[in-house]
Each structure stands twice: as structure tokens, then as C-alpha cells.
């Protein structure tokens, strides 16, 4: 039984930990935007214009992509390993990272060993070297300085079909595809509900709804508990009545026999209700304790109040 319980608990713990690990991990990364023919677009640290593509972290936790792979060859999923140990491979929540497809990996972590011109599909592969997390077919009709990306960051297909992708109205390397000038929630509220009455009504409605639901649930559980309690007390009354009948039928000799049996039982097992009150005092070698010492003044020196003098 204990073994079964151990296996069950371990199983649950392992399952939970696996889900927790994969909840905010490399699987949250998405290929997000790419540009093949770069003539006047974004240039790299060395001043070159090369094709680029962007990865986007869809999660709300930091993801380390060190050890993952990028490739354009389905038969060689480990074509380019993203170096481990580079702090820049830790992608913050909802942020982008740009890779240069310049076939020049010696220029740094973010310069890979193939180009987009020679690629039909690009793949982002997990650090196990087998699991394809995301892939996208590279469109051949893309113009100069034109980019192809997800209409909304991270939203759309991961099977290469291009669902949710399109030619972008403007390029947005390392930033949001849908534009960065979105209003905050507070600004939207200021525009749509300047007096605050809509929010007030909505919020009070929600607070009341939540507590009304709770009220009904606990009314129901209260009814169940009360009826259960009543059943119990009815049964207890019946038991007391039955016990009363037994008491009436029990003779004095029987009581005496029970009392004697209990007395003998307690004597044999040395069970007793109260401890012996004998206090034993033994001599110790240590005759001095600072707690009662006057020189350490651990006790307050008695003083006389004015009216006692």
C-alpha cells in the first residue's frame, strides 16, 4: 500500500515538474519575421547589410535559447548551434532577438552559418537536437528590403504553412510587428470612460456577482451540513435511549464486577491518573549561580518609594 502511495505521489510530482519545466521554456520561442534581400535596411555591427530573421519569446518568463539549433536543412537539424554561456541568449519576456543569416558564424553568436537566399525553410530546433519548435517556409517572391512576418507577434502557425504570416507594411527588426504605439489600458479608459461610471458599474457588478455566487454556494453547503447534523443528533438520541434501556437492565453485581476488573487492570499495567508528588533533591557540585548574585545585579535592587521612606 505504501509502495503504491509512493509511486502515485512520485508520478504526480514528476508530471507536475515536467509541465512546469515546459511551461516557460524554449518551446515558447517563435520565428517572427525575416528579411532576405537587404540593401538599405538594418545593418549589423560590422556595417554589412545581410538577410536577417527574428525570434520572439511569447512567454512572460525569460527563456535561454543557448544550446538550441537553427537550420535550413531538415536532414541536419543541428546545423547551427546557438552558443551556450552568452548572457545575450537569455531572452526577456515578450522580447525579440535578431539573427544575421550571413553565413559568417565567426562574427558572433547571432551570425549563423547559412543564408536565407539558399534556404527553402528555416527551422528553430530545441536543445535536444530533435524537436522542431517552429519552422517557416521562406517566400521566394519577397522584394528587396521587404520583410515577411507574423501579423501579430507570436501568433500563427508553427508547422511552416505560413498561417498568420504576411508581407509586412514596414520592417521591424527586434521590435513589435504590430507597431509600438499602442495605448495603455489606462489611456483607453481615459478616452472611453472619462467619468469612470462605466468602470464603477462594471466593477460593482463583478464584485457582487462573485460574492453572490459564494453566498449561494455556502447557503447550499450550510443546508447540507445542517441536515447531516440533524440526522446525527437523531441517531445519537436513539443511541442514548438504547443505552438507557441497557443501564436499567444492568444489575449492581455487574457494576461491581466491571469496577473490580478496571481496578485490577490499572494495577497490573501501573496506569495511574496523577503523578507522584514526591520531590527529590540531589546535591550538585556547582554551588554558585550568577542569577542570584548581587554583584551582577541580575536582580533589581530594592528601592524605597518616597512615601514609604
Amino acid at each position: 500500500m505504501n509502495k503504491l502511495r509512493f509511486i502515485l505521489v512520485s508520478g504526480i510530482a514528476v508530471t507536475l515538474s515536467v509541465f512546469t519545466l515546459s511551461a516557460q521554456s524554449q518551446s515558447d520561442m517563435r520565428l517572427n519575421e525575416l528579411l532576405i534581400h537587404n540593401e538599405t535596411n538594418f545593418e549589423d555591427d560590422f556595417g554589412f547589410h545581410n538577410g536577417w530573421f527574428e525570434l520572439f519569446n511569447t512567454s512572460y518568463g525569460t527563456v535561454n535559447i543557448g544550446g538550441c539549433f537553427l537550420t535550413n536543412d531538415p536532414n541536419n537539424l543541428k546545423k547551427y548551434i546557438i552558443p551556450k554561456g552568452d548572457v545575450l541568449t537569455q531572452i526577456p519576456p515578450r522580447q525579440h532577438i535578431l539573427f544575421w543569416a550571413d553565413n559568417n558564424p565567426y562574427h558572433g553568436t547571432f551570425h549563423i552559418n547559412f543564408t536565407l537566399e539558399e534556404s527553402d525553410t528555416i527551422y528553430f530546433v530545441a536543445s535536444d537536437g530533435r524537436t522542431v519548435i517552429d519552422k517557416i517556409a521562406v517566400p521566394k517572391n519577397l522584394g528587396v528590403d521587404q520583410s515577411y512576418g507574423r501579423i501579430e507577434d507570436g501568433i500563427g502557425s508553427i508547422d511552416g504553412s505560413g498561417e498568420g504570416w504576411g508581407i509586412m507594411p514596414w520592417t521591424s527588426p527586434s521590435t513589435n510587428n504590430a507597431g509600438v504605439d499602442e495605448e495603455s489600458k489606462s489611456q483607453i479608459m481615459a478616452r472611453e470612460d472619462p467619468g469612470g461610471w462605466i468602470l464603477t458599474m462594471t466593477a460593482m457588478l463583478v464584485v457582487f456577482s462573485a460574492l453572490i455566487i459564494l453566498c449561494f454556494i455556502f447557503k447550499f453547503t450550510g443546508h447540507v451540513a445542517t441536515s447531516k447534523q440533524q440526522k446525527k443528533s437523531t441517531a445519537a438520541t436513539a443511541d442514548t435511549e438504547a443505552a438507557g434501556t441497557i443501564v436499567k437492565e444492568t444489575s449492581a453485581e455487574t457494576y461491581a464486577a466491571i469496577a473490580l476488573a478496571l481496578h485490577l487492570f490499572h494495577e497490573e499495567t501501573e496506569a495511574h491518573d496523577h503523578e507522584s508528588l514526591t520531590i527529590t533533591m540531589s546535591h550538585t557540585d556547582r554551588s554558585y549561580s550568577p542569577w542570584s548574585s548581587k554583584i551582577y545585579t541580575l536582580r533589581q535592587t530594592p528601592t524605597l518609594k518616597k512615601n514609604q521612606r
Partner: peptide
Amino acid sequence: PKLLLIGAA
């Protein structure tokens, strides 16, 4: 449980 509603009000 109806006292919950006072907390809402």
C-alpha cells in the same frame, strides 16, 4: 452567507 453581500456593497 448573506453577510457576504455587505462586504460587496
